[in-house]
């Protein structure tokens, strides 16, 4: 075949596409293996509890503080817009709905991806680079069952809890700014909120979203760590990829889930 510019460009394109698809397939098989070998992580639950500490508990501060500030900003901005139409009592609805439906799950997931996801990738990547995973394999212990699965499940469990804390904190922030600072009527702030926020439709759908996001982030994080080049550049590259890929995946998944859940409601 004559290797002129066009064929070479097409070849390059083709190789990139097949590489991506191959990697996606590999990642899917890796997820299957993780779920299949989860017996150890669930039976010896203290392994998973340890990882919940590192992913969940250590993310608490950033989640709570960001939640509070996001809620306070929502309170300020929401009030500014709503009072132009003379309906500032609807501030509670605005703050609560935007938090439980969207901002809570999505922003908490983005923070989680950069706080915990990157840490998971770096940790597993370093274990690979220093041959700890190989050593484990040589000791007849499957690293997927012993190292990957507990971290995966810890992420899946932590994420919804963090998202709910983010929403609760945000609503509290909105309350602080709206009611305590600006002086929106406290009664109508809460009662309007309660009248419009549905437990199943709004809150539970938000929780389901955060579950899905937790699974996506944990999956990407453990995969990038396990698959990275066992060198310093490999680990740092994988860590960056975890944050970028999972952030994009969260936003895409959020669009799909929102379209499925809140269509017509």
């Amino acid at each position: 075949m004559p290797a002129n510019g066009l064929t070479r460009a097409l070849q390059g394109l083709g190789r990139r596409v097949t590489d991506r698809i191959w990697r996606l397939g590999f990642a899917a098989r890796f997820l299957m293996a993780t779920v299949m070998y989860s017996g150890t992580a669930l039976r010896r639950f203290n392994l998973t509890i340890r990882e919940i500490y590192f992913t969940g508990v250590l993310s608490l501060i950033i989640i709570l503080v960001s939640g509070l500030f996001v809620g306070m900003v929502l309170g300020l901005q929401g009030y500014d817009t709503l009072q132009r139409y003379g309906s500032s009592e609807a501030l509670g609805i605005l703050v609560a709905l935007s938090l439980v439906r969207e901002l809570g799950p999505v922003v908490a997931a983005l923070l989680f991806a950069s706080r915990a996801g990157s840490a998971i990738t770096a940790e597993i990547g370093l274990m690979k680079a220093t041959e700890q995973l190989s050593a484990m394999e040589m000791m007849a212990v499957d690293p997927i069952a012993r190292v990957v699965a507990p971290r995966f499940w810890a992420g899946v469990i932590s994420m919804p809890l963090l998202a709910m804390l983010f929403s609760a904190m945000g609503i509290f922030g909105g309350y602080l700014v709206g009611v305590q600072l600006i002086g929106v009527d406290e009664g109508s702030f809460w009662s309007q909120m309660q009248a419009s926020v549905d437990f199943r439709e709004d809150i539970m759908n938000g929780v389901i979203k955060s579950f899905v996001f937790g699974a996506i982030i944990s999956w990407i994080a453990v995969f990038e760590g396990y698959d990275c080049e066992p060198t310093a550049e490999g680990v740092s590259g994988a860590t960056t990829r975890t944050v970028v890929t999972s952030s994009l995946a969260i936003l895409a998944a959020d669009f799909i889930l929102t379209a499925l859940m809140f269509r017509g409601a």
Binding site: L126, M127, T130, E131, Q132, S134, A135, M136
Partner: peptide
């Protein structure tokens, strides 16, 4: 292993 590969 080469550098021990202890679990850090």
């Amino acid at each position: 292993f080469q550098f021990g590969a202890l679990f850090t």
